[in-house]
């Protein structure tokens, strides 16, 4: 096991940031911690990277105990905190060289590991990190976290505040890194990214709701979801919420995901109701469930 946690709990004052968190990450796995802001993701990462003590429970990373063998862990993991944490007044090149040096290695030695990522920002290597775009900053931070060839890579919300194209590229890079034998623990509030992980843990208010492969989580979701759209989305949303037979309603991209309570649900019933309420251009279509639907459902119960 690359990461092992057993009954981790953490209190901040009276609020329980983490409650009995237990999960294992296998060697060379891409494991996602999925949950909204304030779910406890960062606290969990900090406990695993030896920055915080857990109040209860035990954890190990790369077979080292997070409390007793913290020095070994610090030698063998790469950590990219949620906030961009590199030196803004140093250039790309200087940042990378600095982190290589303090990890007792050189950029040359592990260049093959970062090459795919680094070539994308190399044209700007003389530019200061503070003047980079969000996507470039994130690539630089990943390079710096990788430069010492860590066994386990911790990425705390790496794609927050990054544009859609860069996000996609980023996940492709993670897949490549995984092939090079690195175990990756990544957290994200974006549900669409969850489907790119090998396994995911859904976490909310400090509790794990479910751990499985994204496909299994979707397969186990047995309710029929409808995509609903109309001319005025906000009016549609309130009308759907007022509908007496609704089981769940939430916005999903340009649509609204709607689930009905009844087994014998008929689309035309809903259509008529919405039309009577004054909605125009109403479209109702069946759709497949996503991780987000499963997550919203889990949070309800």
């Amino acid at each position: 096991m690359s990461i092992k946690t057993t009954n981790i709990s953490k209190l901040f004052g009276k609020t329980e940031a983490l409650k009995n968190i237990s999960f294992n990450v296998k060697e060379n796995e891409l494991f996602g911690i999925i949950g909204p802001d304030g779910a406890g993701k960062t606290t969990l990462f900090r406990i695993l990277t030896t920055l915080l003590f857990a109040d209860k429970g035990t954890a190990s990373v790369a077979n080292f105990d997070v409390v007793k063998e913290y020095i070994d862990i610090r030698n063998h993991v790469g950590y990219m905190p949620g906030k961009f944490s590199l030196y803004q007044d140093l250039t790309i090149e200087e940042n990378l060289e600095f982190f290589a040096t303090i990890f007792g290695t050189t950029v040359k030695e592990n260049y093959d590991l970062i090459k795919d990522i680094y070539v994308q920002i190399e044209p700007f290597k003389k530019r200061r990190a503070g003047a980079l775009s969000g996507g470039m900053k994130q690539k630089l931070a990943l390079c710096c976290a990788l430069i010492h060839k860590p066994k386990v890579l911790f990425l705390d919300e790496p794609t927050t505040g990054v544009d859609a194209v860069s996000r996609q590229e980023f996940w492709q890079m993670l897949k490549k890194l995984q092939k090079k034998g690195i175990t990756i623990l990544v957290s994200t509030p974006y549900m669409d990214e969850a489907e790119l992980c090998d396994r995911i843990a859904l976490i909310d208010k400090g509790e794990i709701l479910n751990i499985d492969t994204p496909q299994n989580i979707i397969n186990k979701f047995d309710k029929q979801i409808y995509n609903v759209s109309a001319k005025k989305t906000y009016k549609l949303l309130t009308d759907l919420k007022d509908y007496q037979h609704n089981y769940s309603v939430f916005p999903f991209g340009e649509f609204i995901h709607y689930i009905d309570k009844r087994k014998d649900f008929n689309k035309s019933d809903l259509y008529n109701y919405l039309e009577k309420k004054g909605n125009e251009n109403i479209i109702i279509t069946k759709t497949k469930a996503s991780v987000e639907d499963a997550f919203m459902d889990l949070m309800k119960t």
């Binding site: 920055l51 610090r74 993991v77 950590y79 944490s85 030196y87």
Partner: peptide, 9 residues
């Protein structure tokens, strides 16, 4: 950056 320096050798 202190966070990163702490999680380093």
């Amino acid at each position: 950056t202190m966070e990163i320096l702490l999680v380093s050798p």
